Amino acid sequence: MTDARILEVQAELAALDDPTTRAANERRGDTHGVNLAQLRALAKRVKADHELALELWATGDTASRLLAILICRPKAFGTDELDAMMRAEPTPKGHDWLVNYVVKKSPHLETLRLAWLDDTDPLVVSAAWALNAEQVVKHPELLDLPGLLDTIEAEMPDAPARVQWEMNTTLAMIGIHHPALRARAIDIGERLEVLKDYPTPPNCTSPFAPIWIGEMVRRQTAK
Rank of each mutant, 00 (worst) to 15 (best):
H177I: 00
S206F: 05
A41N: 02
T31G: 12
A23T: 07
W212M: 04
K223H: 12
G214K: 10
P201C: 06
P179N: 11
T151D: 13
G78Q: 00
E134C: 12
E153K: 12
Q220E: 08
T59C: 07
K104F: 05
I6F: 03
H139W: 11
P92W: 09
T21L: 05
W57D: 05
P199D: 04
D3I: 09
Q220T: 13
L13Y: 12
G33D: 00
L192W: 09
L16S: 06
D187V: 02
V46S: 00
Q164G: 08
N100M: 14
P207K: 09
A222F: 07
V125R: 10
E55T: 14
T169L: 15
T169S: 15
K138N: 15
P74K: 09
S106P: 08
D49W: 03
L195M: 11
P199W: 00
V34I: 11
W116T: 08
A128W: 02
P207H: 05
A88V: 03
V9K: 01
D3F: 08
L149R: 06
P19Q: 02
A68P: 04
Q10F: 09
D49Q: 02
H50W: 04
A24S: 11
V125Q: 10
V125G: 01
V124Q: 02
T120W: 15
D96K: 11
A130T: 15
L70R: 10
H95R: 09
A127M: 13
W97V: 12
E89A: 05
A23Y: 06
